[in-house]
Amino acid sequence: MLIYSLKRLLLAILVAITVSFISFSLLFLAGDPAIAMAGEGATDQDIENIRQLYGFDKPVLVQYFDWLLRAIGGNLGESFYFKTPVVHLIAEHMPVTMTLGAMGITFALSLAVPLGVLAAIRPNSIIDRIALLISVSGQALPSFWFALVLVVIFTVTLGWLPASGSDTWLHFLMPTVVLSYYAAPAFMRLTRAGMLDVLGSDYIRTARAKGLTTKSVFLKHALRNAIIPVVSLAAVQFGFMLGGSVIVESIFALNGAGSLAWESIGRNDFPTVQGLILVFALIYIVLTFLADVLNAWLDPKIRIG
């Protein structure tokens, strides 16, 4: 288990380094960053000054290491637009996105796992059909469209829920539903498939032959084994949700990291975009690493090799 985890950790670090390099080179993607920073109407002298100030005249690798060292030290540069440290901006906007992601994943799991289990217990039943319908529509409906439908129903028609802002938990309800509606189908199908697979196995027959109650057979013996792949997917999906919140946050005007990223792209605010990409990517890497470790821990064959 320890060796396994260390291997995974090493892999995660390698990926993180790669990602940091890509994220760094983003700054050069749009051409000469000094010109971009100087803005319109700047003289050649202005641009040259900026180039020297930010070290753009040095070799790329040197610039990368300088940047990396600063990033590790918590300095992601200054926003072109706000003229404040990017780290502060991210710290300010991240909680909303994290809350949204956590609520989204919780809601998706608590909807999808029971439905997947029920669908597997009675394949081809009404519940199974409903699950399939939700699953297909969840994949097919674009989330902005679904979000608009919700707003029309709950804000415009019924007036129950606020459509924009992030002041109270009520503001998070619709964004959560939209976000999780997109992730739930995968959980549901994975739970259903895993359960069906496990229910046909010999140890489930053993559990039945022991006279265990139906509940114990399904939940203790079947679900425990069927849930393992769902756990890894959940961690990965959480990462996707943080990324996916870009759309949802813009629609519902939630002031999170997603909408910050969206707006910063529009404002050519490269340091902010760069910092956000780096942070999102790192979160994603950490989640994947945790998923691997959790997965191993859930499977005694890996835990006790």
Partner: peptide
């Protein structure tokens, strides 16, 4: 009834299977 059957299985009437490698739950 189903619950009477469950009370009988593993209690008064027990079973030994052919495949010992897969008859036990790997997670417990």
């Amino acid at each position: 009834s189903p619950s009477e059957l469950q009370n009988m299985r593993g209690n008064r009437m027990a079973m030994i299977f052919q495949e010992p490698m897969t008859a036990l739950n790997p997670s417990y």
